[in-house]
Design a protein around this nucleic acid. Structure first.
Length: 819
RNA sequence: GGGCGAGUGGCGGAACUGGUAUACGCGACGGACUUAAAAUCCGUUGGCCUUUAAAGCCUUGAGGGUUCGAGUCCCUCCUCGCCCACCA
């Protein structure tokens, strides 16, 4: 008997699959379609790690399962190739990122194939190739034409190491996401002119559609929080002795009679104007200190500080003059960058008022501090006070009336506010898609005509940003100087490149038409294949997934797609950590290399099976060094069963053994089908293991070459094929099947053998387990009761007792209640 | 501070709408095969429990409740994880 050796089996089939192209999808097929994919990979010099092995196996299993079920299953592959690491490497070494990618990506091809992933390599895409980024640029142009792209000067996060702007989500605990070590400097703020996409126009739509998504709940919640919708009012306060007006956003406008001072963010545009001379020194010092203060300090030191500007505003509802302060607990980015402070009902304002001895007016009948959060959650419980004609009303009654009063006074109106800001898409970096804009001194910014796309990224010798805020492209003079498409005068190209999140927010559509030279993609094809049926990843719960949803909605609006949501199902899977629970990291040297495990002789199949078996997909898994050997043992046992079957003599089976074999295999077919369908891979594998153990017991009784054994073993091989595709293919063909196991092979359970003729009925007395009876399925309550009473183990509890009640659950349990 | 989720053997984890808790795997122990080991195969493996068995009792973070019956539902508390966080 030949031993199971993955080193022979796996490369053999990888080669055959590649040559026969069995994973190449026919996108025009008449079969029902299915597309399963994981978030695509950023190629780096270090190759794939165990986290990648986890991620990509999850979608591969799904894709294989559907392919076996007879779907035209498409498992695409691509590279998120633009981004900082390759550029930083280029700055250090002078090797162009284009060249790095050309060196790195072929290594990934080998690794992906070694893992046995069923990717369609014919349709491979990469975001850094002009054939791809031409359309990334086109999306920018379409956004611009639809008034969804605009340029603005903003205070932006700035990484002092990379000399580049950072998106909000790239700032983690006050530091650049790429430089967040203890010795790394804090991110700074810098005024930069840049391009934005108006994602806020879609905020409400994006928020409302979340409810209908078949996504991991934690991600849906994260998206809701990210969008951060609040309903309130914008209210204007006139400044005493001037025409200036301070506008605030408040969700608690019904407490306005308790507004006893105002607070502006230190960066607020009116601060200078409203500072009277006597206070200017103090104010300037405070602003400078706030600027220098890092975001971390602003967030962690909850101690409120601030200074009085010396001027006053008028509370529109009672005409009281209230002092204007600045304080860094008010954020310039949120709302209007200014608040009306209501110390009687807001904790932060209360603390501030106490510290600086500011007036406090309580607008509740209780005349003590009550957090507005509490009022908001039960507005009919609290009574309004100190609010003129509204005194005595509940907050529930007063809220609309006070808003009406503000509207009548012309001082306020209802307003919905979002935490989410417009998407900053400019990056002052080289390694990205150039923004297709030409700046003309006469015409201003002009779009590069579509026919001139792509704007090709020129090769350089020095990739270092210029340090004046512009990317290295500013040095490529030949490239930079162009004539204006509109007036033909001398002009310059935009030197910013597009945020790589744009590349990744539309790639799923390009998968359906990767080589199209005329259009971003063939809409008819995409409309046939959208949405992505299955998508998974362990990161990017907010930014990437939200941006992709935004782009999908935009594509729908301009008629490119039919579905507003790009991903039907999204699984936010867990990661793999080292055995002690800490993250794998290169610096700690505790990483586990998937290729090493394969090369050690365990093979990709055992690795894949272990990863899918260790825990439910959403859970984080600790790496268990014994796990892969365990999975290997299981596959080896299957190999042995098949080999012994092939060596067996032809023969007849006893009817009851035949029956037993069928009753092992049919329920497991049903279970594995349901479990993979609902992403419970771990229990699917457990059930297959259980079935194999049962077949081992039956094999000891009688193993002969016979259709019943062949059918059972073949079915089991087909069931594990999504997890362990190589060994499954090998055994499948050894069993005599001429076609591949990976297409149209999924077994269907025979209902006749799903339920057994006899069932174990549990007998309880007063809810305690006393005995188990093997009775015919569907046994009546009367018969079951009689059988229970006749049973020694039960009857001894019934002696001299009165039976009060009998609970009977068909085919499951009988509970005799006595006193 | 807010939100979400989770606490089950030595470990990873099973248990569908309440109905045999601990499936499956790892580890451990015993046996077979072997000169020996590895590999493989066959057993045992929640606790009280000490040689086994029988019988019994206990056991899903803690305490209480609902129910014939609770890992599952309700209340109180503890612990851990994740996400958001001076968001007006």
């Amino acid at each position: 008997m030949q031993r199971y050796n993955p080193k022979d089996v796996e490369p053999k089939w990888q080669k055959i699959w590649e040559e026969s192209g069995i994973y190449t999808s026919d996108l025009t097929s008449k079969k029902p379609k299915y597309i399963a994919m994981s978030m695509f990979n950023y190629p780096s010099g270090s190759g794939i790690h165990i986290g990648h092995a986890m991620n990509y196996t999850i979608s591969d299993v799904k894709a294989r399962f559907k392919r076996q079920q007879g779907y035209e299953s498409y498992h695409p592959v691509g590279w998120d190739a633009f981004g900082l690491p390759a550029e930083n490497y280029a700055i250090k070494t002078g090797v162009s990122p284009m060249e790095s990618m050309a060196n790195i990506i072929p290594g990934y091809h080998k690794q992906y194939k070694a893992m046995g992933w069923s990717n369609d390599w014919e349709k491979e895409i990469s975001t850094h190739l002009p054939e791809y980024y031409r359309w990334t640029q086109w999306i920018f142009s379409e956004m611009y034409r639809n008034n969804l792209a605009y340029q603005d000067s903003r205070l932006q996060w700035w990484c002092p190491i990379d000399n580049t702007v950072l998106a909000n989500e790239q700032v983690i605990d006050g530091k650049c996401w790429r430089h967040d070590g203890p010795d790394d400097p804090l991110a700074e703020k810098k005024e930069v002119k840049q391009w934005f996409f108006k994602i806020t126009d879609y905020a409400d739509e994006l928020l409302e559609a979340i409810d209908g998504l078949d996504w991991s709940e934690s991600v849906k919640l994260a998206q809701r929080n990210w969008i951060g919708k609040s309903i309130g009012a914008n209210i204007k306060f006139k400044v005493v002795g001037s025409n200036d007006v301070i506008e605030v956003f408040s969700t608690a406008h019904d407490t306005i009679y308790g507004a006893t001072f105002m607070v502006l963010a230190p960066e607020h545009e009116l601060v200078k104007k409203l500072t009277i001379k006597a206070h200017s020194k103090e104010v300037e010092a405070y602003i400078q200190a706030a600027e220098r203060k890092s975001e971390v300090e602003r967030q962690t030191t909850k101690d409120k500080t601030g200074v009085f500007l010396g001027s006053y505003a008028i509370n529109p509802v009672n005409n009281k003059e209230i002092p204007i302060w600045i304080a860094d607990y008010v954020l310039v980015n949120y709302g209007t960058g200014a608040i009306m402070a209501v110390p009687g009902e807001d904790e932060r304002d209360y603390e501030f008022a106490n510290k600086y001895k500011l007036n406090i007016i309580y607008t509740t009948k209780d005349q003590k501090f009550i957090n507005y959060q509490d009022i908001k959650s039960s507005p009919s419980k609290y009574i309004v006070a100190n609010s003129n004609e509204f005194d005595g009303l509940t907050f529930k009654e007063a809220r609309p009336k006070i808003l009406q009063q503000l509207e009548d006074l012309g001082s306020g109106k209802a307003k919905v506010n979002y935490r989410m800001l417009d998407w900053s898409v400019s990056r002052q970096r080289y390694w990205g898609a150039p923004i297709p804009i030409i700046h003309c001194p006469k015409c201003g910014p002009v779009l590069v005509p579509d026919d001139d796309l792509p704007v090709i990224l020129p090769e350089l010798t020095d990739y270092q940003p210029t340090g004046d805020g512009r990317s290295a492209l500013a040095r490529a003079t030949d490239w930079l100087k162009v004539s204006c498409p509109s007036c033909d005068g001398p002009a310059e190209r935009e030197t910013d490149t597009l945020d790589t999140y744009i590349d990744s927010s539309w790639y799923m559509y390009r998968y359906f038409d990767p080589r199209n030279q005329d259009k971003i993609f063939d809409s008819e094809l995409v409309k046939k294949w959208e949405p992505i049926d299955f998508y998974n990843g362990a990161d990017h719960a907010t930014a990437h997934l939200l941006y992709a949803r935004f782009i999908a909605r935009f594509f729908k609006k301009i008629g490119l797609v039919n579905e507003a949501e790009p991903f039907n199902q999204f699984v936010f899977n867990g990661k793999v950590t080292s055995s002690d629970g800490s993250n794998f990291s290169k610096s700690k040297g505790n990483g586990v290399d998937p290729l090493e495990i394969i090369d050690n002789g365990y093979g990709a199949d055992a690795l894949r099976t272990y990863l899918m078996f260790a825990a439910p997909l959403e859970l984080w898994t600790r790496w268990d060094p014994q796990g892969v050997p365990g999975a290997y043992r299981f596959l080896n046992r299957l190999w042995t069963l098949v080999s012994e079957y092939l060596d067996a003599q032809e023969g007849e089976l006893d009817k009851d053994i035949e029956e037993s074999i069928k009753k092992v295999i049919n329920p497991v077919i049903k279970k594995v089908t349901e479990d993979i369908e609902s992403n419970r891979y771990n229990t699917a594998i457990a059930a297959s293991m259980g079935a194999l153990n049962e077949l081992y017991k039956l094999k000891a009784k009688s193993l002969v070459k016979n259709p019943v054994w062949l059918d059972a073993i073949s079915s089991l091989v087909a069931l594990i094929a999504p997890f362990a595709p190589h060994i499954a293919e090998e055994l499948w063909q050894r069993l005599g099947h001429s076609l591949t196991v990976h297409k149209d092979s999924w077994p269907k359970p025979d209902d006749k053998y799903l339920a057994s003729d006899n069932v174990t009925i549990v007998v309880q007395v007063n809810g305690k387990l006393r005995s188990q009876l093997l009775l015919p399925a569907g046994v009546s309550e009367e018969d079951a009761t009689q059988a229970a009473k006749d049973n020694d183990k039960v009857s001894r509890y019934l002696e001299a007792k009165e039976i009060k009640k009998i609970i009977f659950v068909k085919d499951k349990i009988i509970n005799i209640v006595i006193n």
